[in-house]
């Protein structure tokens, strides 16, 4: 399955069906992060229900130092 994650084209296993699984695949499940799925911002509880399909556009952001 091909996805656009943070502007990069990536290929991930077809076994990944939900956002929570994708986050786990990238080993980010312990991180404080926020996900936008096809321009819809998800709350953490929505990660396990958000179904991923080929061609989806996903943004994964976090807090970094800033003033």
């Amino acid at each position: 399955m091909n996805l656009l994650v943070n502007g990069d084209k990536v290929e991930v296993p077809d076994s990944i069906e939900t956002m929570a699984q994708l986050i786990k695949y990238y080993q980010l499940d312990k991180k404080v992060l926020i996900v936008e799925h096809n321009l819809t911002i998800l709350n953490k509880e929505q990660h396990q229900y958000s179904h991923i399909s080929d061609g989806d556009k996903i943004e994964i952001v976090n807090f970094v130092g800033g003033g």
Binding site: V5, N6, L28, I34, V61, N62, V64, G66
Partner: peptide, 9 residues
């Protein structure tokens, strides 16, 4: 304060 930026996945 913090900023919001893309994560290095």
């Amino acid at each position: 304060t913090f900023s919001v930026r893309r994560m290095n996945i």
